[in-house]
């Protein structure tokens, strides 16, 4: 039978279903009967839900970001070929 410490240490693996099935069953049984460990599990689950919800939108590169990257790489190409740096305007 698992102790509370063993359950707490394995909560992430349990959330990710990254453990043997028999151990999953044991953790599930423990959480079902231990209100403190259940609160630990439920709040950890909710934390991940919140975090994923906040980051669900795809990020978009700012306007001009691509052009600035191309410029930086062009300057690096010139530098690697030994060309003098362009005059700053």
């Amino acid at each position: 039978m698992l102790t509370c410490k063993e359950v707490l240490d394995s909560l992430s693996d349990y959330l990710d279903a990254d453990m043997k099935e028999e151990l999953i069953s044991e953790v599930k049984r423990h959480i079902g009967s231990c209100s403190d460990c259940r609160a630990e599990f439920d709040t950890l689950t909710m934390t991940l839900k919140l975090y994923k919800h906040e980051h669900a939108e795809p990020t978009v590169m700012p306007v001009g970001c691509h052009d600035r990257l191309v410029k930086v790489l062009e300057l690096e190409k010139l530098r690697s070929k030994g060309a003098p740096p362009p005059k700053m305007v």
Binding site: D36, A39, E40, D42, T43
Partner: peptide, 12 residues
């Protein structure tokens, strides 16, 4: 990390 649960509030 705590070694045992300490009666945390369940805000889930």
């Amino acid at each position: 990390e705590r070694e045992t649960p300490v009666n945390i509030a369940d805000w889930s």
